[in-house]
Design a protein around this nucleic acid. Structure first.
Lengths: 158, 158
DNA sequence: GAATTTAGTTTGTGTTACAAACAATATAGT
DNA sequence: ACTATATTGTTTGTAACACAAACTAAATTC
């Protein structure tokens, strides 16, 4: 055991290590919250996307970065639980749109509140100005990153 | 289409939204890099953990936050690919330790370099002082968060 | 109106994750 | 030492998740 451990004062991480580890921490928290509601990370994401959209199956696949064949089962399971529903597309008799049900909306609302609380718990060690700074930096990264097109969704919370 | 989209200038995200979305972005990048080497996220994490440890199966389960029964298959598959190996524990004839092989070490080294490059690409929009700030804030969050015990591992890169 | 493209499902394969039951070894209690 | 209990790891069974290839039905192109 070294002084870092004793004083809970690890060496400053590189920017890469910091972002990678922080992403694991956040995802772990999200996963734990989801598990408490029998939701996987991907299902949380699905509901989050549907909060303010009613995409086709194919658009959903693109939002999530998954193959279209993966979407069938994902939506099937969510539909079986009454969280989402397929609606017929007015233009295209092949396609469906996917919509959250009131039950799904209620669930994602509760999950969102929990995410709000627990992510705030994660940053309890930051003072207000640090939080503002972190939010601004995260926004800037998401805003300017060449990779942002990978994420066409918004977060799961309000 | 609104002005945000035109000017690539989305509203400042809340701290919660920012962290959640940033974590998705980082994980997506890690997943893409892994896919290029036939590695899943969990396998990248496994190799990352083994970079500087030789844990027992159970310790591995705790590091990863998984059930011990999940570790058997994970290590089996990595062992089949020659990336890790089980070594007999000197003290306990029931247990194994898990060690990365030279081939595994070489792979994780290459993956780590790619992570380094691509995460740096993600933050290309930040100037140096902003990067330093972000690294410091990430470190502080990881250092002070009550949830940090969930992550007893270090990141996958040098 | 025939050929091609597109949207979504189906089928088959493999990974990931858990829980319960199990075998083998270690440890504790007496 | 001997028995009871605990611990380590695997096995078995179940299910979600992800992809690719083959397929159906509807839309589009020529």
């Amino acid at each position: 055991m070294n002084n870092d451990a004793l004083f809970n004062n690890q060496n400053e991480l590189s920017i890469v290590d910091g972002l990678v580890q922080l992403s694991y921490l956040v995802q772990t928290v999200l996963g734990r919250i989801g598990a408490g509601h029998d939701l996987s990370l991907i299902q949380i994401r699905l509901l989050g996307i549907l909060r303010d959209r009613e995409p086709s199956m194919l658009q959903l696949a693109q939002h999530l970065g998954l193959d279209k064949s993966s979407i069938t089962g994902l939506v099937d399971r969510a539909e079986r639980r009454g969280l989402v529903e397929r609606t017929i597309s007015p233009n295209d008799r092949r396609g469906f749109n996917v919509r959250v049900t009131p039950a799904g909306r209620q669930l994602i609302h509760g999950v969102g509140n929990e995410i709000e609380r627990q992510i705030n718990a994660v940053i309890e060690g930051l003072i207000d100005t640090e939080r503002a700074h972190l939010a601004a930096l995260a926004t800037k990264v998401l805003d300017t990153s060449a990779w942002s097109p990978l994420l066409s969704q918004r977060a799961e919370t309000k």
